[in-house]
Design a protein around this nucleic acid. Structure first.
Lengths: 81, 81
DNA sequence: ATCCATTTGTGCGTATGTATC
DNA sequence: AGATACATACGCACAAATGGA
């Protein structure tokens, strides 16, 4: 369980986005691989789906990940995919 | 078609769980027997599969039923199975 | 061995309502 | 009023297991 600071000024969805962004940057989650499902992330961060959706949306807007309906959310590779 | 109250405070998935729990308790659906499939329940209660999934999850947590992929949802017997 | 229909399992996308700050 | 968060519900797509033709 990863702790989220609910007191500070940074909303949970931004904190989670930052954490996932870091995991991608460090290669902990390499390109082409799927990131944990919303259900798993829900358990890890103890937040609602809605919050996770927003966090993922941030990464999608940054072009770091892309979602595939019925499959999951994948880390984008430098080139295609 | 069994009616579900969508006005009250009790969410549909809890109402459905209660209905199925009652059918099991009264013996209407005896131990070892299969419960109607999700498709059939979908028709009976006019709700989405996601809602039924949650209702079934409640009964699974209570140890009343168990699911078998490709087969169905079965009422557990006091002893095994 | 193959194919297909059935059934549950697992994902995400979207929408609505409520509550809090 | 607006942003954030949570719970619930519905829809759609794909995967895996089972059983029968």
């Amino acid at each position: 369980m990863t702790e989220i600071d609910r007191e500070g000024p940074v909303p949970p969805y931004r904190q989670i986005a930052a954490i996932l962004r870091d995991r991608i940057a460090t290669g902990e989650i390499p390109p082409g691989r799927r990131i944990p499902s919303l259900v798993e992330l829900e358990a890890e961060f103890a937040v609602a789906r809605d919050t996770l959706r927003k966090a993922v949306q941030v990464l999608k807007d940054e072009g770091l990940v892309e979602t595939v309906t019925g499959m999951g959310i994948y880390v984008r590779t430098p080139d295609g995919t």
